[in-house]
Structures are given as C-alpha cells and as structure tokens.
Simulated scan of single mutants.
Amino acid sequence: MSVTMTEAAARHVTRYITKRGRGVGVRLGVKTTGCSGLAYKLEYADEVAPEDIVFEGHGIKILIDPKSLPYLEGTELDFVREGLNEGFKFRNPREKDRCGCGESFRV
C-alpha cells in the first residue's frame, strides 16, 4: 500500500513551497493525543531524512517516518474548501473511529 495525494492537495503544497522559496514536500505522521488516541501531524519538509519512507504524488514528495507508516498506509491526503473553511483532509481506510471534535482517531 502507499500514501497518496490528490491533485488539489499537490497544487496547494506547490503554491506554498513556491511562496516559501524552499521545500521538498510534506512530512506526514501521527502522534499520540486526544480522545481517540492518535492525531495526524503534517508539516512542510525542507529535506528528506535517511529514515523517511518516500511516496510521491503529482510531483510532491510525501515523507513518512517508519513508526507512523502502519497507521497511514492507504491514506489519501486531500485539500478541500467547505464554505469559508479550507484545509487538508485525511482519507484513511485504517480509521475505525474518530472523536466528536474530529481532532483524533483510532485504528
């Protein structure tokens, strides 16, 4: 399995990296927190670390640490606009439950 990115997410990341003037892609991982146990963490990455597992979508690198990969396999990263709000959305087939506030999930 792999981790993928929609074209909309790739366009957003490309615009932001261009604006920043540096970056190789995004780093996606999970951290222990919240009501359901895990939360996604997403940040722009300026370099690939030796331990990173690298996927690529629409010309953008998606970097994942080996400990997070079992929780993220099959995930699709999207960028959506809903009304006045916009942001990244994670479509993770491994999610079994999500807390009411939507900040954390369980696999």
Score class of each variant (00 low, 15 high):
His12Phe: 15
Ile64Arg: 00
Asp46Cys: 02
Phe90Cys: 05
Met5Cys: 15
Glu82Lys: 13
Gly23Val: 11
Arg106His: 15
Leu63Pro: 03
Glu43Asn: 03
Ala39Asp: 01
Glu73Ser: 14
Lys19His: 13
Cys35Met: 07
Thr32Met: 15
Leu38Asp: 06
Arg11Met: 10
Phe90Ile: 05
Pro66Phe: 07
Asn85Val: 04
Val3Asp: 01
Leu84Glu: 15
Leu69Met: 09
Leu38Lys: 07
Glu43Thr: 04
Gly57Pro: 07
Arg27His: 15
Ser2Val: 08
Pro70Tyr: 11
Val26Met: 14
Arg22Gly: 03
Phe105Asp: 07
Phe79Val: 14
Ile64Tyr: 01
Arg94Ser: 12
Val26Arg: 09
Lys89Ala: 13
Pro50Trp: 07
Thr33Met: 09
Lys67Cys: 02
Val24Asp: 08
Lys67Ser: 10
Gly25Met: 04
Arg81Ile: 15
Ile17Val: 12
Phe55Asp: 09
Arg98Gln: 02
Asn85Cys: 02
Lys19Glu: 15
Arg91Tyr: 15
Cys35Gly: 03
Val13Cys: 11
Ser36Thr: 00
Gly21Asp: 14
Ile60Gln: 14
Gly57Ala: 13
Gly102Tyr: 00
Gly21Asn: 10
Arg81Phe: 00
Glu103Phe: 00
Lys89Tyr: 10
Val54Leu: 06
Gly37Ala: 01
Glu76Ala: 13
Asp52Gln: 04
Val54Asn: 01
Ile62Tyr: 05
Glu82His: 14
Val13Met: 11
Arg11Thr: 06
Met5Gly: 15
Asn85Pro: 00
Phe88Gln: 04
Val3Tyr: 00
Gly25Tyr: 01
Glu56Asn: 05
Tyr40Arg: 03
Leu72Met: 11
Glu51Asp: 14
Ala45Gly: 01
Ser2Glu: 10
Val3Trp: 06
Arg98His: 02
Gly102Ser: 04
Val30Cys: 08
Ser2Arg: 08
Arg22Lys: 12
Tyr71Ala: 06
Val54His: 02
Val48Trp: 04
Thr6Leu: 03
Thr6Met: 07
Leu77Cys: 07
Thr14Val: 08
Val13Asn: 10
Glu43Ser: 12
Val24Trp: 08
Ser104Met: 00
Tyr16Arg: 14
Lys96His: 09
Tyr16Phe: 06
Ser2Lys: 12
Ser36Cys: 03
Val80Gln: 12
Phe105Thr: 07
Gly29Gln: 06
Ile64Gln: 04
Thr14Phe: 00
Phe88Ser: 07
Arg106Glu: 15
Pro70Ser: 13
Tyr16Glu: 10
Thr33Val: 11
Pro70Met: 14
Asp46Ser: 06
Tyr16Met: 13
Cys35Arg: 12
Lys96Met: 08
Ala45Met: 04
Leu38Met: 02
Val3Met: 03
Val80Phe: 00
Phe79Glu: 13
Arg94Phe: 06
Lys61Phe: 05
Met1Leu: 12
Ala10Phe: 07
Val26Lys: 11
Glu7Thr: 01
Glu86His: 02
Asp52Ile: 01
Arg22Cys: 07
Gly29Asn: 09
Glu103Arg: 01
Leu42Asn: 07
Ile60Arg: 11
Tyr71Gly: 00
Glu82Cys: 13
Phe88His: 09
Tyr44Asn: 01
Asp46Val: 07
Lys96Asn: 03
Gly57Ile: 10
Ile62Asn: 09
Tyr44Phe: 15
Pro70Asp: 12
Asp65Val: 05
Val26Asp: 12
Glu95Pro: 00
Ile60Gly: 13
Val80Lys: 13
Glu86Leu: 02
Asn92Thr: 10
Asn85Tyr: 02
Lys61Asn: 13
Arg20Tyr: 13
Gly100Asp: 03
Thr6Phe: 01
Glu56Asp: 08
Ala8Asn: 10
